[in-house]
């Protein structure tokens, strides 16, 4: 039982870890509260599902999902930078708009992938073994490692540094000759590309894509970022990326345990909310008990 809980939490931690990194890039790196995520997650899932269901190569379908996410993120950031629409509102507009787009893409609310060849069947076939939860984990580990290395490299490049600096001190970055609007577009694109990739992988691992499967993704991503930071106190890009995966794993672990303890799926939202409150409040309470000074509450 413990083993099955761990296995499912690891595989979900890897799957949704991409969402967490996406949320980390917008919320923490760019300081751009992007709510597109709930929509772009499903966009990734539906693009991949439609392609796979119509017999396309599942890897091609997964790349197409990632590109769809890149485009969604680009539009969100463009609404903000080109038309000066508030960041929060830009994301909300995209999230709402994408809901209709997703329904159009899928020609309905749901696409089953049970008898289709997903990347997991492809990998299983290639290795001449049967699809199993362990095989899914291995596949995801390889994918996660690839993106981990790519992001760890990219965020240290000159462009990546300018992107990180843009969320920290935008005025300074422009004053040093980097176009912050471009940086925000790039960051939002990468973020939603990762989220859509996660959506496509989730659809392929669970065997269907549903138009409502993105609801609450942003909250999950934020919760996982906060848990990862709270547990590991990461410093430096590699550790931060790693903390995103660890945070997601722990989040899924708590959820799985809560479900096994007999709580109904309907209770999950309350569990998530409680979990985030605990992770955020505990360090504060501990500091207060030690008599440390704590700055006043932040509102943004």
């Amino acid at each position: 039982m413990i083993q099955s809980i761990l296995l499912s939490s690891i595989s979900e931690g890897l799957l949704f870890g991409f969402v967490t990194i996406g949320v980390y890039i917008t919320f923490r790196v760019l300081a751009f509260p992007d709510l597109t995520v709930d929509g772009s997650f499903v966009t990734g899932g539906s693009v991949a599902a439609v392609m796979i269901a119509t017999g396309h190569n599942p890897f091609l379908a997964t790349v197409a999902a990632l590109i769809a996410g890149l485009i969604a993120g680009t539009i969100t950031a463009a609404l903000n930078t080109a038309f000066r629409i508030n960041a929060l509102l830009s994301g909300i507009l995209m999230m709402v708009g994408l809901y209709s787009v997703n329904l159009r893409v899928m020609h309905g609310a749901n696409i089953p992938l049970i008898r289709s060849i997903t990347i997991f069947e492809s990998v299983a076939h290639f290795c001449s073994i049967r699809r199993s939860s362990v095989l899914i984990i291995y596949t995801l580990v390889v994918l996660a490692a690839m993106f981990f290395l790519a992001l760890n490299w990219f965020l240290r490049t000159e462009v990546g540094l300018a992107l990180r600096a843009s969320g920290d001190n935008e005025q300074m970055v422009r004053g040093l000759g980097s176009d912050t609007n471009k940086n925000v577009v790039l960051g939002c694109a990468i973020s939603n590309g990762l989220v859509a990739l996660a959506g496509s992988l989730v659809a392929q691992s669970q065997g269907f894509c549903d138009v409502n499967m993105g609801i609450g993704m942003i909250v999950m991503g934020l919760a996982a970022v906060i848990i990862g930071e709270g547990v590991l106190h990461p410093r430096g890009i590699a550790k931060i990326l790693f903390a995103c995966f660890v945070g997601t794993f722990l989040y899924r672990l708590f959820i799985t345990i809560a479900l096994r303890l007999g709580l109904a799926p309907g209770d999950l939202k309350l569990i998530t909310a409680t979990l985030v409150v605990i992770v955020l409040a505990v360090p504060y309470v501990k500091k207060r008990l030690r008599g440390e000074w704590v700055p006043p509450a932040a509102r943004m």
Binding site: R156, T157, E158, V159, L161, G177, S178
Partner: peptide
């Protein structure tokens, strides 16, 4: 890198 184009080299 003020005034220069920023590329994909290590910063």
């Amino acid at each position: 890198l003020r005034g220069q184009s920023r590329g994909l080299r290590a910063a």
